[in-house]
């Protein structure tokens, strides 16, 4: 039962890492502009689901369709290109290049897309401003706080105007106030640009920023709206 007009759809995904099943029949769908929280205890397969949805990992079985294209049938290079142009990513930590300044970090995806350095950094600065971390632009990630770092990461995820943002425990390393601020900024920015957000989290207060949640347990998804 796939809702009409879904942007990203996964059907019956299976994935096993070295004899340990991570996904055993997971389904997913998301509309443009929708924020969906993926909940579940640790080790339940949340992150693996996100990796499969984003085309980082190929599922052993099942299909992922994005905007009518079968992601699982694309080559590694094609998926990389898609991730560059259509997707954005925010991880828990360790995603910013420690040697680059924050502006340079945000400009990174634009430069990968072939935009010249000056122009890319201009856009990056605008995004840093939107996320209220313009002051950190010339600093390196090691010199700013974790909350600021995550905002820089959010700016980097959004800078290419992606259609889907994948956020894997984006507030996992933050205190609740910084975490909420990051979530507010992330969801607001995503909504205003009609980007869908796949939000993997184990924090319900963070999940409360979503429009809908699905629960992953033992590699299977349950959509509370459709269960029972």
């Amino acid at each position: 039962m796939i809702p009409e007009g879904s942007l990203l759809i996964a059907e019956d995904l299976h994935k096993t890492y070295a004899h340990t099943p991570a996904l055993a029949g997971a389904c997913f769908s998301i509309h443009p502009g929708e924020v969906v929280a993926v909940l579940g205890p640790s080790g339940s397969g949340k992150s693996t689901l996100l990796h499969c949805l984003a085309g980082i990992v190929q599922p052993d079985a099942g299909r992922v369709r994005y905007a009518g294209r079968d992601l699982t049938a694309l080559s590694d290079a094609e998926r990389s290109a898609l991730r560059r142009t259509d997707f954005g990513f925010v991880f828990q930590f360790g995603q910013l290049v420690p040697e680059l300044s924050c502006t340079e970090n945000v400009a990174l995806p634009l430069r990968l897309a072939g935009i010249r350095r000056k122009a890319a950094e201009q856009v990056a600065m605008e995004w840093l401003e939107r996320l209220e971390v313009a002051d950190s632009g010339s600093k390196r990630p090691g010199e700013i706080s974790g909350g600021q770092g995550q905002r820089v990461a959010v700016a980097r995820a959004l800078v290419t105007s992606p259609r889907v943002v994948f956020a894997d425990e984006p507030t996992g390393a933050l205190d609740s106030y910084s975490g909420e601020r990051v979530m507010e900024l992330l969801t607001e920015a995503a909504r205003s640009s009609n980007a869908a957000v796949v939000l993997v989290t184990h924090e319900t207060r963070v999940a409360a920023y979503s429009d809908r949640e699905i629960v992953v347990r033992d590699g299977r998804t349950r959509d509370p709206d459709h269960s029972l």
Partner: peptide
């Protein structure tokens, strides 16, 4: 891995 995730060749 994060760099590869967002599509760095």
């Amino acid at each position: 891995s994060a760099l590869v995730a967002f599509g760095t060749p």
